[in-house]
Amino acid sequence: MSEEMRIIETKPLDSVKHCLVGMPDTGLTGMIAVSQIVESMKLPEIGHIESDLLPPVMVIHDGEPKVPIRFFGDSNLTVLTSETPIGTRAIAPLSRSLTAWAVKKKVEMLVSVSGIAVQNRMEIKIPQVFGVATNEKGKNRLKEAEIQVLEEGFMVGPHAMIVRESLSKGLTNLVILAQSHSGYPDPGAAASAINAVNKLLNLEVDVKKLLEDAEGIRVKTRELMQRTTKSLEGMAKTQEQELPAMYG
């Protein structure tokens, strides 16, 4: 495991069946989606990630200081999320540590949730969801869950590095990408992503409350979105919206 990133398990688990990851990224889609899943399933906090490469930030909840990148869940489903954007320097070490941890915990499926920016998002009522898988097993799961495979494009950010590390370690990693605003928090995209995750992992997370609270969430996540947008600027994130060079 990378020495630069330390996964601290406050409630250690012998094995984990499924692991879900949602970091601040395009439209905060992944972070909003997995936070909703944690809240809805009342998943307990079971650990966190420490590193000198992460911003010197602690968050305080109910008077208790917390590390911003935390694990929630149990041996059936573990969720990793962050309350602060992951800077460029931390992404590769974080992905290495997370995938090494997933191999050690015999994770059957590592699922990253994120958004994929579309220019006409304000005209789309129900965002479509696309999937990327690192192996045949993952592709079959996408097919069974009726999630359309992303045929061409770029991925930039934490989920892209997790794919790279999963490929090298032979880990089944799926990326769920919901059509999203690029620079505005998008609970609607998060709801579409949750519906896809429900099918993929046989969960029953209701998105009704998320959609009812959508406008309040958009107001209260403006600053995190702004900070995330700045963080993504250093990662050539706009490449995701470029037309691919069709020479492959």
Partner: peptide, 23 residues
């Protein structure tokens, strides 16, 4: 007062300003 998230996109002859205005 809150400040809305804003994007300014400039093209050859136009400027498009978008703002996220929930609620």
């Amino acid at each position: 007062r809150l400040e809305p998230l804003t994007q300014v996109i400039e093209s050859l002859d136009k400027i498009v300003v978008t703002m996220d205005l929930p609620l």
